[in-house]
């Protein structure tokens, strides 16, 4: 589903990302862990063609992202608040995304009802624009919006950050459900090793722009990762 070859990003002579080869299969639930500056967000930005690779290429479903726009219909992402439109209400934002993804109102509403618990009564019909919501509530909107239109690839950068404990539990449930769906490839990055091992069946650890661990989750994974990151 996702193919990365010789991908390199260099800023002013400093290599911030260097991945020879990485392949993510369809239906995989992929977790990305690493310290600050490990290159997680850089990798996601490259996957979404938001930054230009110095060398190499990313292919989503055999579409090279910096040459064609054909990857956009089946890919959804929430990286940060720059994926939200501040002057819209949450409902308007969901419908906007829905229309872009060819969904009618009814199917968007259905999805919203399904995730009513996740919103915890703080999002819908609050007569607030997205810009006036708290960071955590903004995040909830962004995450649910990526589910609209049944995308085949979902990319979430640090989805657990800024969320309250209850919402974190609910988010884990959502991601696990998606992981069970064999048509959806989901990529999640996090600083939290426990969360990631819980929701992902494959975990890649990055350090200074390189892949240093690539493991399929098992009982020992968390311990292995903790040992790796312990100083």
């Amino acid at each position: 589903m996702i193919q990365i070859n010789n991908l390199k990003k260099v800023y002013n002579g400093v290599t911030v990302l260097n991945i020879d080869h990485l392949e993510i299969k369809k239906g995989e639930s992929f977790g990305l862990v690493g310290n600050n500056g490990a290159g997680k967000t850089t990798l996601f930005s490259l996957l979404l063609d938001l930054i230009e690779p110095t060398t190499g290429a990313v292919k989503l479903n055999n579409v090279q992202v910096n040459e064609s726009e054909a990857w956009k219909p089946f890919t959804a992402a929430f990286v940060d608040e720059s994926f939200l439109i501040g002057y819209l209400t949450p409902e308007e934002y969901f419908y906007f995304i829905g229309e872009l993804r060819g969904q009618n109102r009814a199917s968007v509403d259905e999805l919203l009802i399904k995730h009513k618990d996740f919103f915890n009564g703080e999002i819908l019909n609050k007569k607030k624009y997205l810009r006036d919501l708290s960071k955590g509530n903004q995040k909830k909107v962004g995450i649910i919006a990526t589910l609209i239109g049944n995308p085949e690839i979902i990319i979430l950068d640090e989805p657990f950050a800024n969320l309250d404990p209850t919402t974190q539990f609910r988010l884990k449930k959502i991601i696990k459900d998606l992981a069970d769906d064999k048509d959806v490839t989901i990529l999640v990055s996090s600083h939290d090793l426990a969360h990631t091992t819980e929701v992902s069946d494959r975990i890649v650890a990055m350090h200074k722009g390189q892949v240093v661990k690539d493991i399929y989750t098992s009982e020992e994974t968390l311990k292995e990762l903790e040992e790796f990151f312990a100083v």
Binding site: L48, D49, L50, K72, S82, F83, I85, I97, G149
Partner: peptide
């Protein structure tokens, strides 16, 4: 403010 969204959405 939301250019990354516009560039990665459908």
């Amino acid at each position: 403010a939301y250019y990354p969204l516009m560039m990665s959405q459908n």
